[in-house]
């Protein structure tokens, strides 16, 4: 029973508190997926602090058992970890998933070196367990999680999460525009469908919900090529080609106000309408929970 997705941090690059970003939120990358028995966390940006406070309000009697997946260890995806209250409780177990070398785990702990933070990683009371993917699939509680590679400076991972026939894909920090089959067409004819290779579409295929990095507008992107993020319109085309049902645009640019994000969502909705498709697009917003297991 129950497949819930909650957005705790949807901002890219750096936290942006303040009135301009109050509605969508200013915390960096953090997403929770849960069932009645399992809690998965995707990314440990500053949104993780609020998630931690929520978790300790009503912890299970046996303590918290959490599964933490990191897309990659850039600051905006790990900065919340030193402020994650459950990590200070001896009754908590945190499984940290990474590649075979599990460099994410090393970098997560490295940010708590004395030069950066007063509390040492080794002094955290929780049991923190590095875990590696066997191949590209793990069973985490009652979820199956598949990892896939993405195009980002230094590399990043996307995750396809499955439970009882429902699928959510978490795909932040991927420069889709460098993977287009015909990049020149996207530049010369922005309205034309941007085609992505089958290997990129495969992990997204038929997802009920795709949470995807859509940091830039078409106009902004040319000055940010190689920074590792996608144009919102390209993400829409990806979702359309992959048969996705619902698309959450996320990793909002720190320069974008709530009104800017609204405008990007409206542009995306127009693009879907022009394609004659039924994809539902919205802007990921802090504090919103979706339920995936509705009929």
């Amino acid at each position: 029973m129950g497949f819930f997705v909650r957005f705790w941090g949807v901002r890219g690059s750096i936290p942006t508190p303040g009135p301009r970003t109050r509605r969508y939120g200013g915390n960096t990358s953090c997403y929770e997926m849960r069932s009645d028995t399992t809690v998965l966390i995707f990314d440990a940006g500053t949104g993780l602090r609020e998630l931690g406070l929520s978790l300790v309000r009503s912890p299970p009697p046996a303590g918290l058992e959490l599964h933490l997946f990191l897309s990659h260890p850039h600051w905006d995806h790990i900065q919340g970890f030193p402020f994650f209250t459950p990590a200070y409780l001896p009754t908590t177990t945190i499984h940290v998933y990474g590649s075979e070398k599990n460099e994410n785990y090393q970098l997560l702990s490295g940010q708590m070196a004395n030069a950066y933070f007063p509390v040492a990683f080794k002094d955290l009371s929780a049991r923190i367990v590095p875990r590696s993917f066997t191949g590209d699939v793990v069973q985490a509680g009652d979820f199956v999680v598949r990892r896939f590679d993405q195009r980002h400076p230094g590399g990043s991972s996307g995750f396809r999460v499955e439970r009882e026939g429902r699928v959510v894909v978490f795909a932040t920090d991927c420069e889709l525009d460098q993977l287009l089959l015909d990049p020149a067409a996207a530049r010369d004819r922005p309205d034309a469908r941007r085609t992505l290779p089958a290997s990129v579409l495969a992990p997204m295929r038929d997802a009920d919900l795709l949470i995807a990095d859509a940091q830039y507008t078409d106009e902004e992107y040319p000055k940010r090529v190689g920074w590792g993020h996608a144009r919102a319109n390209t993400v829409v085309d990806l979702a359309l080609q992959a048969g996705v049902r619902q698309l959450a645009l996320t990793h909002h640019d720190p320069m974008h106000s709530d009104r800017d994000v609204d405008a990007m969502v409206l542009t995306a909705v127009e693009r879907v309408r022009a394609a004659g498709a039924e994809l539902e697009v919205f802007g990921a917003r802090e504090g919103v929970t979706l339920r995936l297991d509705r009929p």
Partner: peptide, 23 residues
């Protein structure tokens, strides 16, 4: 928070299970 209602809760047009409200 939606209490398993028949017709759901829509926040600015999006069906949600729960949401923190903003002005």
């Amino acid at each position: 928070e939606d209490l398993d209602s028949r017709n759901g809760v829509f926040l600015n047009g999006l069906r949600v299970h729960a949401a923190v409200l903003r002005d």
